[in-house]
């Protein structure tokens, strides 16, 4: 009896999957930068899914269109703000980012490889950690709040100059143990609802959960400008929201736990293009 019901359920579930797909669409930004929004899954997750897909494919047509042109992308206003900050001297050393790094376009190729192992510090660093390290140790300036506006703006600038380049974080060597910790977190069922990232973003992408169309929960588009809160949202703020929604005690943005989770989630998008700042609902 139980077995039969199982088979019956399976049939029902398959039908549901079949009707819920990401859209068939392609993204070219400013008629210039071709964005890879779906590609073969990296080897380490080939057991789980065949293809990895950007969250862009799961949004409605109006939201998708906003990302096709920088004039329509509200996230680009924050990139301009960060460009000003890039050139403004701050802190006891009287230096700006530009004093050492020249133009912000010198950062092309940096976003796709973060989080990244830093040999001197002996730790895996997110882009946010690296930016604050430059502020504190090289500029003599106050660190920015991890998920605050100044920080989100700067990460948007650094993402924007890498748009179109493939995400390519290293998961072996000294980063491996951190990556493994992140993978464990991804499959851990947290909170009173006992839901893991994988329950929603691996087993059910393409399906509706109440009013939301579930994506693969990729981070190649971060920071994201969300129509819901009309600001840039950082990776760890998004993670925090998703963990909270399982009725769990969340981790702190910037914590070693979220750094590990970020490395792992980033690696699930290896091969997708950097597209931040992206637009989401």
């Amino acid at each position: 009896m139980k077995k039969m019901t199982g088979a019956f359920l399976a049939a029902l579930v398959t039908t549901t999957y079949a009707i819920a797909e990401p859209v068939d669409d392609t993204l070219v930004v400013n008629e210039d930068i071709a964005i890879v929004t779906r590609t073969a899954a990296p080897a380490h997750m080939a057991d789980a899914v065949d293809e990895v897909m950007s969250g862009w494919l799961f949004r409605g047509s109006e939201t998708r269109d906003m990302q096709r042109d920088d004039f329509d992308n509200p996230g680009m206003i924050f990139v301009e703000k960060a460009e000003e900050a890039w050139n403004t001297a701050e802190g006891s050393e009287g230096k700006s980012c530009a004093s050492c790094h020249n133009g912000s376009d010198s950062m092309a190729g940096v976003r796709p490889v973060y989080p990244k192992w830093n040999e001197a510090a002996g730790e895996v660093r997110t882009l946010e950690m690296q930016i604050n390290d430059c502020r504190e140790t090289r500029m003599g300036a106050e660190p920015w709040k991890y998920t605050g506006g100044d920080m989100a703006n700067m990460t948007a600038l650094l993402a924007s100059v890498s748009r179109g380049l493939p995400v390519n974080v290293a998961i072996d060597g000294p980063a491996q143990s951190t990556w493994e910790q992140g993978r464990e977190m991804y499959y851990a069922r947290t909170g009173q609802l006992e839901l893991s990232c994988a329950n929603c973003h691996e087993d059910n992408y393409g399906n509706m959960i109440r009013a939301d169309h579930l994506s693969q929960g990729q981070i190649n588009g971060f920071p994201t400008y969300r129509l819901k809160n009309t600001k840039l949202n950082s990776v760890h703020a998004r993670f925090k929201g998703c963990v909270r929604d399982t009725r769990a005690e969340t981790y702190k943005p910037g914590s070693a736990d979220f750094v590990a989770l970020e490395l792992y989630v980033a690696s699930r998008g290896n091969g997708l293009s950097v597209e931040g700042p992206s637009v989401r609902n």
Binding site: A188, R189, E249
Partner: peptide
């Protein structure tokens, strides 16, 4: 695992 106080985080 890591039960929370409703949706407060």
């Amino acid at each position: 695992f890591r039960p929370g106080k409703a949706y407060t985080g």
